[in-house]
Design a binder for these strands. Sequence first.
DNA 1: CTGACTGCAAACGTTTTGCACGGTA
DNA 2: TACCGTGCAAAACGTTTGCAGTCAG
Lengths: 140, 140
Amino acid sequence: MKDYAILLKNTGLKATFQRITIVEQIEKHGHISIECIYDVVVSIYPSISLATVYKNILLMVEKGVLVEVPIAGKKSKYELAKKDHIHLVCTMCGEVEDQAHQDQIENLFYSISQKQNFIVIKQQVNLYGICDTCQIEEAS
Amino acid sequence: MKDYAILLKNTGLKATFQRITIVEQIEKHGHISIECIYDVVVSIYPSISLATVYKNILLMVEKGVLVEVPIAGKKSKYELAKKDHIHLVCTMCGEVEDQAHQDQIENLFYSISQKQNFIVIKQQVNLYGICDTCQIEEAS
DNA sequence: CTGACTGCAAACGTTTTGCACGGTA
DNA sequence: TACCGTGCAAAACGTTTGCAGTCAG
């Protein structure tokens, strides 16, 4: 577990207990919706308000600490900012799994940006489907 | 312009004027949010209600006529279902441009699905950045 | 000590719902 | 004609806001 107090301060945000808890829980859960963040954080720090969670998520996305993962047909989830990767979104259980990027895809995106004269700032790749676990449950 | 009455009937939906107009306008505009769909459709068919637009968008997504394009930090847009492609999302003007897929990416996604034992049903690739037009305006 | 942050409650905008009426097949 | 679809209004929901009190730096 990283020192999130420093991470936060580096972005100009004060390291409150609320913020640190939010970030820690997002790391722990990987990909998580705002309501779920609230649920887990409130169990650790019961007096936190939902508004605080909303304000901080927004702020941390703005500062680049968090990344929004928009998902078709559902509420967005949030994750810690990290190296680009692909999301495998299970349409049965809703779980999101990370999948490392290959160089191939970087090259492809680069060639697109050249060809279209489009400056790529951020990328987001979701594959929707059925995860291993749900395939097994499905079969039984 | 395709015959959307038939397209709708094939999915089991009745071809009402409201639905046909919605689909036509989505085709015309390419990528469009629900509120914008309502705005353009109401100018053609003033008595339509927002609830009808919502109900039909949802229904048509379910039936596979439309596809939701979720966009980080914004409301989802909708487009007609078509061959997979990449979305270039301009973070300045909000416009979304389609970019044809290369085989490369298909192969990549296929290899991921094999390796992770994840059955891919749908894919969604967004590149966020600055479009040609906005770069020019920016420079001036 | 001071500005940034929190928690609360109210406001707001978006989406969903139930129901009576109207239109498609 | 039967049933699906529409429009309306209200309700439910998610998110944002303003403000007074609190806390990190």
